[in-house]
Design a protein around this nucleic acid. Sequence first.
DNA 1: CCAGATCCATGCCTCGACGGTATCAATGTG
DNA 2: CACATTGATACCGTCGAGGCATGGATCTGG
Lengths: 280, 280
Amino acid sequence: MDLDLDLRKLRYFVAVAEHRHFGRAAQTLFIAQPVLSRQIRAFEQELGCRLFERTTRSVELTPAGQRLYEEARSITTVVTAALRRVHEAERGEQRLVVAFSPGLHVSEAIRVYAAEHPEVEIDVFPLRWWEQDAPLRDGRAHVGFLRRPFEDSGLRTVPVGHETKVACLPVSHPLAGRHALTSADLDGEEILDVRTRRTSSLDEKFELIAAGQGLALVPLSVAGSYSRSDLVHLPVTDALPVETCLAVPENACAGPVRDFLDVAASTLRRDARPSGPVGA
Amino acid sequence: MDLDLDLRKLRYFVAVAEHRHFGRAAQTLFIAQPVLSRQIRAFEQELGCRLFERTTRSVELTPAGQRLYEEARSITTVVTAALRRVHEAERGEQRLVVAFSPGLHVSEAIRVYAAEHPEVEIDVFPLRWWEQDAPLRDGRAHVGFLRRPFEDSGLRTVPVGHETKVACLPVSHPLAGRHALTSADLDGEEILDVRTRRTSSLDEKFELIAAGQGLALVPLSVAGSYSRSDLVHLPVTDALPVETCLAVPENACAGPVRDFLDVAASTLRRDARPSGPVGA
DNA sequence: CCAGATCCATGCCTCGACGGTATCAATGTG
DNA sequence: CACATTGATACCGTCGAGGCATGGATCTGG
């Protein structure tokens, strides 16, 4: 991957895109106009696509340029937030990013923790369906409330609850009139799984179901939040409830994470046995 | 703001952070070790804070370095996704980003649009409570389903529905035993508003309410999704329902946005009068 | 139709940043 | 205490960013 996007050139590009005029954009950037022309041309070559359709009398964005202009806002937002948080860390401010699988709500543990540790800034990280554990591994989140199955290796996990799963089918489906199903009823049906069909959102998954592409087993809480008139949710009497876990990276025994685990353990008051060795 | 973060230096930093060893990190980067030492030092000066605590025998991350390492993942994720989408645009692929106020679900219009325009990639942009319209103005989203109130100027809006608001109060509140309230009952109560108290998440707002910091008026759909045992939701009989709108930037009459508005207009089949002039 | 204005592009120059090689200084090891 | 390891420093060459002058294309007024 050529991740070497030059943020300075991106800033130049944004100026030209907003002014649609090289001379005035150069003025706001405090550089000379010829420099800007060359930088933009170099930027286009680096990206491999033209960004402006320009004559001597007009400067207009190409589709690629339009797209880049939109993306530039996301990039600058993330970068400025990152720099701000780095400086906060430099000043000693602590932060804890708690990831949540979709449909799970902020738990009791996080509220107790926030009350006990007001000096720690707490952020939530909404997880996507297909990236249950990745943000925990690469450092984007420190602790996570995940729904099984996910990849255990390298994580310490604590079970925190169970969710019953219900079958989601279109109203036109032959089984839709039943009051309850068994797993035997689902034999031969196409089950939409994270592995079989990578849907980017839950709504997209429901859309596939409504279109007759298959069925899905979804946690009850999710089914309740996203009710649609063209879908029905039916309990599956013999389905195993899916386990929800609190997970942290194995190597992370640092302050806030450690404290959070302590709070979680005392909050749960149930058989909260860590699945791995709990070192000091 | 000094947004001029050098992504090349960031890449160097990540390599050192992962290897905790300048020589080996330099090998993987295909540069000489002295270069890496100088780049890291320059990077620290640009950021204004030390990133590594290093002796001749060990290299460890400072708190600021640890934070930057976490943020680096977010930055690279956003940048690579942005570059990918720019190239998709270059190849002619179209994209439509639909923003949603929290609690609103993907509407009928988006499903119909996706079915009619399978060539357009559709993304959703979950809006925060305090940034109802900003992503629409700066290009991060193309159309948005917003909940009033928001800043109208510069946007074309189409009313798409109404939501009744319910009062959310802690169970310990004197009014909590009532079956319904009127707005007169709420006189003198502290109402938690986006303007009065900038809560970063809905859960945080509910947490404030549970802590006795005040009450809030929340849309019914939101109240249903986030039920808590320490809060009660009561209808307010004379409260005006809050209007939900479909909004697009005034200057955007381009292809996918235009098509989406057409689909929305035909889908709604109600008095979908645009609030502004609908140019060609 | 032409002179002038406007505006982006090109050529040439200077300077600073990046990368390489050689070497020093500090620390751990047998 | 000799030696290896490792990060830091010094010095040098190259490349790219920025400035200035100018060219070429297009629109406008007379």
